[in-house]
Design a protein around this nucleic acid. Structure first.
Lengths: 131, 131
DNA sequence: GTATCTGTTATACATTTAATATAACAGATA
DNA sequence: TATCTGTTATATTAAATGTATAACAGATAC
């Protein structure tokens, strides 16, 4: 589990941590039940504060990505990530709409946009196939 | 040009203004050359501060969506919005990746995700057809 | 010519968010 | 007992957000 932080990014550090752990799960480089470093050790490795890592873990826990075992510590949720429900789909639509709005304004064809999405999906499928 | 602000949203007001004007352009309810309200009058209509509107206009101007005529005031850019360039495509990919990451984690099928995108594109096409 | 409206800029202030720092607590482990 | 765990509390700094007031130069209307 090697995280790459961009301290110059406008994306908050805790959000970068959350997203990269989610990427690890999507790529299956992080599998259900796999232990994650403690908030203190990860913070030390990244050279940041403990609370920043804790905030990322807290959100991941709320979303069902990880589980806190009093014995095993922090682990990727053994039951897998909760499936896409209505709430998630609504949030996804709210996130997609401004992206598509701008694409439409700039005269981007629907097929071109769809291809971009497919390319990203393909990246996940390709890297997942290598394991 | 009627804007609906959600003061409870975590999305900043200036960003809501920017996005809704972009939506107006995408839907062609705002056409090239069409005048927009002044920063002061729009702020008064919305019941917010002038600088909040000014910030939204400033970003829209930077992105090429609007033009500031010393005579005509603020207008939708007569030449249309600049086309999707490499920089835009790279930014789009950076915005899409975390959305697709989460979708993959939740076991969402690629086709299901693509359909969501197509539905949103269809909304724009449908509403643009009514004019 | 005066008054008004325009976009723009400057300054100041309050609130919220992000990140850090230090500390403490209870449970589990060696 | 000592250490590590997640968790919580409090305080501080910095940045982002939104507001408030003011001023400037250019254009417009009377």
């Amino acid at each position: 589990m090697i995280l790459q932080l961009d301290l110059e990014s406008e994306t908050p550090i805790y959000m970068q941590i959350k997203q990269q752990i989610m990427e690890g799960i999507a790529l299956r480089s992080l599998v259900p039940g796999e232990p994650l470093p403690s908030v203190r050790s990860l913070a030390a490795d990244l050279g940041i504060n403990m609370h920043t890592v804790n905030k990322a873990y807290k959100l991941l826990k709320q979303d069902g990505y990880i589980l806190i075992h009093r014995q095993k510590g922090v682990v990727v949720h053994p039951d897998g990530v909760p499936p896409a429900d209505a709430e998630f789909l609504q949030g996804l639509q709210g996130d997609l709409r401004p992206l598509i709005t701008e694409a439409v304004c700039r005269g981007m064809e629907k097929e071109q946009f769809i291809k971009k999405c497919k390319d990203i999906f393909a990246q996940f499928e390709r890297e997942r196939g290598n394991e």
